[in-house]
Structure formats: C-alpha cells, structure tokens
Design a protein around this nucleic acid. Structure first.
Length: 193
DNA sequence: GGAACGATCTGC
DNA sequence: CAGATCGTTCCC
C-alpha cells in the first residue's frame, strides 16, 4: 500500500456520528500504537439500541468509556483471556462504538510477529489485533484524536490519503447471539491490483 | 454470594 | 469442535 499523503490525525468530528456510518469511514484508516501500525480492513458497528451491544443495558463501569465522547478507545476483556478494542463514536452519552476486527500491518511487523509468536495472520480478528499491537486494559479510554499523555504508549488514528472502499463487503457481525442478522460488519474488499 | 455467559482463538 | 479462563452482570 503506497502512502499518498503524510499521515494526519483523524478529526474527532469525523467520528462524531452514527457508528454504522463511522464504521465505513474507518476502513483504510491507519491505527498506530507505538512502533506498530496497520491499515484498518475490517470493523463492526455497535449502538445502544442494539441488543448485541455492551451499551444496550445502559451505562456500567465497564461501558463507561463507550458512553463518553467520540475518538476514545474502548477496550474490554472477554473469554477470560482476550482483549478487544473499539473506537467510540457519536455524541457523548450515545453509547456507540466501532469494533476493530482486522488490520493490514504497515509498520512494526517484527514486533507484532514477536508478540503473536508467528509471522502470518498478525492482526486478523479483534483479539489477535490487540495482541499484535500490545493493546490491553491499560489503553481503555485513551484519546485517538490527540496526543494523550496518559496513554501507555503513543497511539493515534491517522488518515494517509487512502480512501475507504466505495463498496465495502457488508455482512452480519461475528460471535454474537442477539441481533445476528444486522448487517453491520464492514470489510475492505480484496483489491484487484 | 453465586452462577451463567461471553463482540475469541487455537489446536486437535 | 471443544477447551482455555476470568471479569462483568444479573439474579437470589
């Protein structure tokens, strides 16, 4: 993937809208955590009026960040061993987020490979993505749209000029048991060349 | 206080 | 296809 423009941070205003819309916009954006970076190629949208969402049952200690302002990272622990990361979207109080499901690695491949214990499929799946980038609970709530001194490592969401796909692959979300037919998973299609 | 259940991944 | 493994949530 050729970088077309110098990377610049994604503006918070881009994220301050409905998560299914933000989900499409996040495709092909770049997430950087320390020395590692990758292009976002698969995401899922969640909303508070959505039975599959953590925010569906209202504000709790865990979902506090999800109800906060757009642009922060919502990190949660699941299945007793995995971390998953979301970008919070919408207005403060909305309880919306976009789950990051897969990245195409750009920088820090060696670090990612070391953390993953393998050299292929470095960031395919929400939990492996977090493992590859070193994202854990200490990253919960960090701001992706500005330098966050409280973050465990330099982190941010960037636009390097590569636009979202005009026609993303759309499908149902993975691993949920409610609202299983809602088509809020979005993926960058495999490009012809 | 206790139990059920995950927005998953890996290896068999 | 089942096991790993534990925080969060909800019910008694």
């Amino acid at each position: 993937m050729t970088r077309r423009t110098p990377p610049r941070r994604v503006a918070r205003s881009v994220l301050d809208r409905d998560s299914p819309d933000v989900a499409r916009l996040l495709l092909n954006k770049v997430l950087r955590v320390g020395p590692c970076a990758g292009r976002i190629v698969e995401v899922e949208a969640y909303r508070s009026d959505d039975p599959a969402s953590h925010s569906f049952r209202g504000r709790t200690k865990r979902t506090e960040v999800m109800f906060g302002p757009a642009g922060r990272l919502y990190v949660y622990f699941v299945y007793g061993m995995h971390w998953c990361a979301n970008v919070v979207t919408g207005a403060e109080g909305d309880g919306q987020a976009v789950l990051l499901r897969a990245l195409a690695p750009i920088d820090g491949l060696d670090v990612m490979a070391s953390r993953r214990g393998r050299t292929d499929r470095l960031a395919e799946g929400p939990a492996t993505l977090c493992q590859a980038l070193g994202i854990d609970g200490s990253f919960n709530g960090v701001d992706l749209c500005a330098v966050d001194a409280a973050a465990p490592a330099p982190i941010g969401l960037y636009d390097d000029g590569v636009p979202p796909p005009s026609v993303p692959v759309i499908g149902p979300r993975i691993g949920i048991t409610k609202a299983v037919d809602v088509p809020w998973r979005f993926r960058v299609p495999r490009v012809p060349a």
